[in-house]
């Protein structure tokens, strides 16, 4: 009944299970581990740009919005074929992020409300489609359920491949176009004045975001994928004042959180991977917020103290 606690109570058991998990003793565990690490790293890197552009919660909307796409793909193909599901999720996630932009530009609209509207209405549509599938499906739809909160153990080789490809292409793409991403994120007006195609970059980033979310949902789930975009990036911002390093730290924090979360959900049967990974990332955030060299609480407190002692002297 309490698998987590039971597992944790015998520390030797824990070590043994950690060994069998991290040394690839079982194939499914190896796949799960690789997938979670790559998803964490990818989300971390992409998330930095999202957070810096003030689009943190756009990831939340796009994440929830994959649900109707997944459901439509399932209905059309009648199964859990990875390419169809990816394409469906991708389409609806991209559509959602574009819709947020369109709604935010209308008269009398508020950008924050636009995100909430798109998130909930897309998710509502997904809910409706899920009940339709539950009623009519002849094949198993259990795989679809696991995408809500993530179940990395159930990852297929096709999904793993798409994660690997996406991670290589997108992280490589970020590295190659790093300068343009930096300048258009930092100062878009200036970027446009030196001929950087800021609109193109914006939409490329939305597409990157959609791909990232779509390959991540099997591991972390549509509901919590936004946390993996926001939390490691925000933690990394406490660690350095140079963007290159922030990106590296965010990727690292994401990857380690992915590994830890996959392990925890491997230990405790019934613990969805998404919440476990997110909780690991949130713990890292807390640590970085307290001890981070840039704006960290401990450093601030120390600075304040040394300032007041100097004033006294």
């Amino acid at each position: 009944m309490y698998p987590l606690i039971a597992a944790a109570s015998g520390s030797s058991v824990l070590v043994a299970r950690a060994l069998e998990f991290f040394t690839f003793k079982y194939d499914f565990a190896r796949d799960a581990l690789i997938a979670s690490i790559l998803v964490g790293a990818l989300c971390g890197v992409v998330g930095v740009f999202l957070v810096l552009r003030g689009l943190s919660l756009l990831g939340d909307a796009a994440g929830h919005a994959t649900l109707p796409g997944l459901a439509v793909a399932f209905i059309l193909t009648g199964g859990l074929a990875a390419p169809a599901l990816l394409l469906g999720a991708l389409t609806s996630a991209f559509l959602a992020s574009v819709t947020v932009g369109v709604l935010s530009r209308g008269a009398r609209s508020r950008p924050d409300a636009s995100i909430g509207i798109v998130l909930s209405v897309f998710f509502g549509a997904g809910t409706v489609l899920l009940t339709y599938i539950q009623r009519t499906a002849t094949t198993s739809y259990a795989g679809l359920d696991s995408m809500l909160l993530g179940n990395v153990a159930g990852i297929s080789s096709g999904q793993l491949l798409s994660i690997v490809v996406a991670a290589i292409v997108l992280i490589g793409g970020v590295a190659l176009t790093y300068r343009h991403l930096l300048v258009s994120t930092f100062d878009s007006v200036f970027a446009a004045s030196i001929g950087v195609r800021t609109r193109l970059i914006h939409y490329a980033l939305l597409a990157t975001l959609s791909v990232t979310i779509v390959v991540s949902v099997q591991a972390v789930g549509v509901v919590l994928v936004s946390a993996m975009l926001i939390t490691p990036a925000s933690a990394a911002l406490f660690l350095s004042s140079r963007l290159e390093r922030v990106l590296a730290f965010a990727g690292l924090i994401g990857a380690v959180s992915g590994a830890l979360g996959a392990f925890v959900s491997y230990l405790g049967e019934g613990v969805a991977t998404g919440p476990a990974i997110v909780l690991a990332a949130s713990s890292f955030f807390l640590v970085c917020m307290i001890f981070g060299p840039r704006n960290g609480l401990a450093r601030r407190w120390f600075n304040q103290r040394s300032r007041s002692t100097r004033q006294e002297a």
Binding site: Y2, S56, A227, P275, S282, M289, N295
Partner: peptide, 29 residues
């Protein structure tokens, strides 16, 4: 309100962490 955390990111960090705790407790206990 702190330097170093963006206000929209703050929302995302807090509620996802709490929601994750809720889901894990729900599924285990």
């Amino acid at each position: 309100s702190r330097d170093g955390v963006r206000s929209d990111a703050a929302i995302g960090i807090v509620f996802t962490a709490l929601f994750a705790v809720g889901v894990i407790l729900l599924s285990t206990s």
